[in-house]
Design a protein around this nucleic acid. Structure first.
Length: 420
RNA sequence: GUGUCCAUAGUUCAGUUGGUUAGAACGCCAGGUUGUGGCCCUGGAGGUCGUGGGUUCAAAUCCCACUGGACACCCCA
């Protein structure tokens, strides 16, 4: 075969598309329930938006972005995540000047050049929401309960929500020192990866999957126990609201999101129905991002969720069965006269909204019947010179096998009743 | 980027210690009625055995490289 889709990318074929429609429709409807409005941004942005917004030291910016120069030499990047792009659009279009709080959601492809595996593709799709302009813990709670609500509405069973606070620019640096001092005691014993992170990103050592790292850091100090007063209050208010809303969650002091812009609340939703990449969604508060990309301080919260991963859990739950589309009527032609009549009649039926199909391959009547059956058409009209002569057509119900004759003038009415 | 496993018809797979025309099932096409589907029967089409090298008298089968896939690490949605 000459051409193949590039590594880590997939076609979504007609036979699967109804799953995507189903999922997208549900997401949209819940987003609207929470009064979030859709936003769409270009698939690429200036590279600097992401490197500045997400953080130079993150893995995403460091080694996963699809970056290329355009013909004028500007460095562009296929979006690896949506938050920075949304915030750019927010600033560029002065959305914050039109109202103090902006609530938007998106459904969009993302691109990250990683080694593909279960639940990880190079082009994948995310949905997510951003609540821009509020530092109120109610906003954090709304975002968390919104994402929960979506999974609940899909009747997903095995998911759980964990929350944490990663502090702010005031308390986190102090905590970092405390943590570093603690880790220094046994730095040599840590995994190679973790030793590298000691200087740049000591927080990340806490959520290492390495067994020895986990054992060694069992008693390490956690950010949530070293928050400044403001962060501590914020964290406890978020919890109180979640309790009131009956959103089930647990506190996990080791959650550290991989993007630099998070402050205070960080959370994730994982599923035991997924493989090693078990995060369905992740998010949190990012009070510093807007400043990073050149706006004035704008406290915000948001989350992002993987559609392929959601689909994987739904496949496990056997949610999809025979939801594919099929025509109501297949018009089978017995001869050349019938062929003309068939396309004319199909058009008439289509004009009143009845999905109809005909044969395009000059097949025998038998083959046309087979085709109608394969497509799960509910009815077949047989048309040939005889019927056209008599102006009366045979309509076969494909489920029961029963045939009846209907005069040409009654056909439209007949199907409008039958297919209602 | 690293590691492990894998790569044969449209699909899921079989292919014996390397040996001659590479098989099955399902799917597809046609026929079994002269204008009628599903079940059944009969026949048919369809394969550069991922690609490129190498070993050998002989390679789908052994070796190497590359590409792609699955999974895991890493990281994350």
């Amino acid at each position: 075969m000459k051409f193949k889709s590039v590594k880590g990318t997939k076609d979504i074929l007609p036979e699967d598309i109804f799953k995507w429609h189903f999922v997208e429709q549900k997401i949209r409807s819940i987003m609207h329930t929470f009064n979030y409005r859709e936003i769409r941004t270009p698939v690429f942005e200036e590279t600097a938006l992401f490197s500045r917004g997400i953080g130079e030291l993150t893995d995403i910016v460091g080694k996963e972005m699809y970056t290329f120069p355009d013909r004028s030499g500007t460095s562009l990047t296929l979006k690896p995540e949506m938050t920075a792009a949304v915030m750019r659009a927010y600033l560029q279009n002065n959305l914050g000047e039109q109202q103090p709080l902006t609530k938007v959601y998106y459904i969009s492809p993302m691109f990250r050049q990683e080694r593909p595996q279960a639940g990880r593709l190079r082009q994948f799709h995310q949905f997510g929401a951003e609540s821009i302009g509020s530092s109120n813990p109610t906003s954090d709670a709304e975002i968390i309960s919104l994402s929960n609500q979506i999974y609940k509405s899909f009747e997903i069973r095995n998911f759980k929500t964990s929350i944490n606070s990663v502090g702010c620019e005031k308390c986190r640096p102090q905590y970092k020192e405390i943590l570093k001092n603690h880790l220094m005691g046994f730095a040599q014993k840590l995994s190679e990866e973790s030793q590298k992170r000691l200087e740049q990103n000591p927080l990340r050592i806490l959520d290492s999957k390495n067994e020895t790292d986990r054992e060694l850091t069992k008693n390490a100090p956690l950010v949530k126990d070293h928050l400044c007063e403001e962060c501590a209050n914020h964290f406890s208010e978020v919890q109180q609201i979640l309790n009131k809303l009956n959103v089930p969650y647990s506190i996990d002091g080791r959650i550290v999101r991989g993007l630099d812009y998070y402050t205070k609340t960080a959370y994730e939703i994982v599923s035991s129905d997924l493989g090693s990449q078990d995060a369905l969604a992740g998010g949190g508060r990012y009070d510093l991002l807007v400043e990073q990309i050149g706006g004035k301080i704008t406290p915000s919260v948001g989350f992002a969720a993987g559609i392929e991963r959601l689909l994987m859990t739904l496949e496990k739950g056997n949610v999809f069965s025979g939801n594919d589309i099929s025509p109501d009527v297949f018009i089978a032609a017995a001869d050349d006269l019938g062929k003309i009549w068939a396309i004319e009649t199909a058009m008439k039926l289509r004009n009143v909204g009845i999905p109809s199909e005909i044969d395009f391959l000059n097949r025998s009547l038998k083959a046309q019947m087979r085709e109608a059956d394969r497509q799960k058409a509910r009815f077949v009209i047989v048309a040939g010179a005889t019927e056209i002569e008599k102006q009366s057509f045979t309509i076969k119900n494909m489920q029961t096998g029963v045939q009846m004759d209907v005069p040409s003038s009654e056909i439209l009415n007949h199907f409008q009743n039958e297919t209602r």
